[in-house]
Computed example of a mutant assay.
Amino acid sequence: MTRLLDPTAVRELAARLELRPTKQRGQNFVTDANTVRRIVQLAGVGESDTVLEIGPGLGSLTLALLDVAEQVIAIEIDPLLAEALPGTVAERAPERQHRLQVIRADALRVTELPAPPSIVVANLPYNVSVPVLLHLLAGFDSWRRGLVMVQAEVADRLAAEPGSKIYGVPSVKMAWYAATARIGSVPPRVFWPVPNVESGLVSIERRDPPQTTATREQVFAVVDAAFAQRRKMLRAALAGLAGSSAAASTALTAAGVNPTARGETCTVEQFARIAEQLHG
């Protein structure tokens, strides 16, 4: 059985590496074995899975994933942590170290992987969680499901439904790729350093995007414009894209959307229809 990291082991590893966690990289390391076991279980990781993990840090979640998965591809931007991770795995799970591949890179810039992942499971850095998720969804279509731990507020936004006050750009863009749901919470006390916010667990189930003649870029441009000033009616918010408020109203009406509606009421399918009318 793999020896998972506990609070003492995390601090000893950090001391050995002379590591000072930075807020800039959102470095908060999980110190609770039950939490990482729970994440792996909720993610439904199986023995045939190739898992893509972003920001493995000291290896708390990595070790739990290696306990189950066929392979773990871990992308780590911090050179100190990337170099240390294979040694931690060799020490605590020597019979599974061959299952780990560490890539020292910025997850936002990775375009190739050594193997196609079937699932993404990660404790995502708070400050880049949404851009990283959208990049992975756009760039790697082999993974059909995922489970990510993000700041609770971000978790709620990712899973928000139309009409909600927190429904916005992340909600719509995630809906283009997948069905998302907030399926749990993680308290600050299981991290070191202890963050001042709660974390949320978000499940991701890939699905086909809306059927549309508009490109994803065109649809996303409409989404960005609709929420740039979310208090504005759509006919005003989209005036820049359409050329005028009147042209925006015509396109919205043709798409079956009330020109006086606001972006927070529209589904991803409606945004796709609006983009079709603007670019048709």
Rank of each mutant, 00 (worst) to 15 (best):
L4P: 08
V223M: 01
V10P: 07
A159H: 02
L124F: 02
A246E: 15
A155C: 00
T111Y: 10
V110L: 06
K173D: 09
R206M: 10
F271N: 07
A93H: 09
V148P: 04
V45M: 04
A152P: 04
T213H: 14
R20Q: 13
M149N: 09
Q229V: 13
G55Y: 03
P187W: 02
D224F: 05
L134G: 00
P162H: 04
R92V: 00
I183W: 03
Q71V: 02
L5H: 11
V257S: 00
A15S: 14
A251M: 04
T62P: 09
A74E: 05
A152H: 14
S185C: 12
G184F: 02
V132R: 02
A246N: 10
I73L: 07
E12R: 15
P259M: 08
L113D: 02
R189C: 13
E12Y: 07
P86C: 00
R235W: 12
Q151H: 10
G46T: 13
L108H: 01
R37I: 00
P79D: 05
V102C: 06
I77H: 12
R92W: 05
G87Q: 11
R230F: 03
E91D: 14
L136A: 05
E18T: 13
T8C: 13
L113F: 01
K232Y: 07
Q24R: 15
A14P: 09
L17A: 11
L80W: 01
P117E: 04
A107G: 03
A272V: 05
A247Q: 15
A84I: 00
Q71S: 12
V128K: 07
A33Y: 03
H135P: 09
G256F: 11
L4M: 11
R206H: 06
G139D: 01
G44V: 04
I204L: 14
R207Q: 14
S142A: 11
Q151E: 12
V51Q: 00
E153M: 00
T212N: 12
K173L: 15
V150R: 00
L234V: 02
T180A: 13
R104A: 14
S249H: 05
V194C: 12
A155I: 00
A64N: 09
V51C: 05
S129N: 09
V202Q: 03
A105P: 11
E70H: 14
R189Y: 13
A248D: 04
P188D: 08
S171D: 07
I75L: 11
A115T: 04
G44R: 06
M233L: 11
V257K: 01
D6F: 12
A138E: 15
G280K: 14
G46C: 08
P94Q: 08
R145C: 03
Q151D: 04
S118V: 03
M174Q: 10
Y177T: 03
A107C: 08
V102W: 02
T260W: 13
A115K: 05
A15M: 04
V268H: 06
A275N: 10
R109G: 15
E95D: 15
P21T: 02
S185W: 12
G200Q: 05
G26Q: 04
